[in-house]
């Protein structure tokens, strides 16, 4: 096929992307990437992080991982896949713009944006929104809170372990929260719907989902609680057995390139590079107070924390 001048150059071939990004965002990402690299065909396979890991594990046993690039939720997942030797070491162009805490010191993966868990509220129902995690235990919100289940949302499980590990919150706060009768739904998407429709007055959910709805006109807004927010930086990594390393590297480069990061901003994400402005209504990356935790310890405690949370819910 005849191509217009210059476009036929550059890396070519096919790569497969496994991602937990919303389908629409992943599609937009690929479209933007193809503006620069028209000859690289990207097949997107979107699924939940847990399901992606299952697929990766079973493919590894059968005939090798089918994917070239993984862009998914949380660092713990990447840590364990890295331990298994599934990733390539690669430091993408522009990685120097990213703060040390958002990338693997060994260079196996790198963060792409900051996703925080915050408090969202329905503006029709709440005039004076809670400003801290503590305030969620106020009687005012009894039976009016929605939150995702740690059984289904990897991020929610991580959050539970993180809250529990923080001295200012801890299990004491989680118990008080559960005592305030929250409605535990499957995932962030359900919290989002419940907030918009007025099922919940307040909800614990991911920040960009709040901004998405706000932008579309739903009666929803969000608060970054004072204590700080659990945050993940949605890492990207290249699989060790990729058969198109160059294309995979260009893709990861693109993710943290200025264009890639601006696209993230359009999609209401907080960019991982501090030199890029956050989307309207969101704080700048360096203004965000992140609840810190020991990654290894949290990874180890995640299952126990989930169990304990479910136990509390049942009682």
């Amino acid at each position: 096929m005849w191509r217009s001048g210059g476009r036929g150059d550059g890396p070519a071939g096919e790569i497969t992307l496994y991602t937990s990004e919303p389908q629409e965002n992943a599609d937009a990402l690929v479209a933007a990437f193809n503006e620069q690299y028209p000859n690289i065909e990207v097949t997107v396979f979107r699924s939940g992080t847990g399901e992606l890991v299952t697929r990766i594990e079973s493919e590894r046993e059968a005939s090798g991982v089918q994917a070239d690039v993984l862009v998914a939720a949380d660092a713990p997942t990447f840590e364990s896949l890295k331990e298994e030797g599934l990733f390539l070491q690669y430091t993408p162009e522009g990685a120097e713009q990213i703060d040390e805490q958002f990338k693997d010191p060994d260079g196996y993966y790198v963060g792409t944006r900051l996703i925080s868990t915050i408090i969202g509220y329905n503006t029709n129902q709440v005039d004076d929104p809670p400003q801290s995690w503590q305030e969620l235990t106020d009687l005012e919100y009894r039976g009016r809170i929605g939150m995702p289940s740690p059984d289904y949302s990897g991020a929610a499980a991580y959050n539970t372990a993180l809250w529990a590990s923080r001295p200012e919150l801890g299990w004491e706060w989680i118990e008080a929260l559960v005592a305030n009768e929250p409605t535990v739904v499957e995932g962030n998407g359900q919290v989002q719907q419940g907030l918009a429709s007025g099922q919940f007055a307040v909800g614990i959910l991911i920040d960009y989902m709040v901004r998405d709805l706000e932008e579309q006109g739903s009666p929803v807004s969000g608060v970054f609680p004072e204590e700080g927010v659990p945050a993940i930086f949605q890492p990207a990594a290249i699989f060790e057995n990729t058969d198109n390393r160059e294309a995979a590297e260009r893709f990861v480069d693109f993710l943290i390139s200025e264009e890639g990061q601006r696209l993230s901003v359009e999609q209401n994400y907080v960019p991982i590079r501090s030199d890029i402005e956050s989307p309207e209504g969101a704080p700048q990356l360096d203004e965000i107070e992140i609840l810190e935790g020991d990654l290894e310890r949290l990874t180890a405690e995640q299952d126990a924390a989930r169990e304990r949370f479910n136990e509390l819910l049942r009682n």
């Binding site: 919303p22 389908q23 629409e24 979107r46 699924s47 939940g48 499957e186 995932g187 962030n188 998407g189 359900q190 989002q192 719907q193």
Partner: peptide
């Protein structure tokens, strides 16, 4: 099904 599972209810 995946869109629904992922919470993309609009789509």
């Amino acid at each position: 099904f995946n869109l629904h599972q992922a919470g993309a209810f609009n789509a």
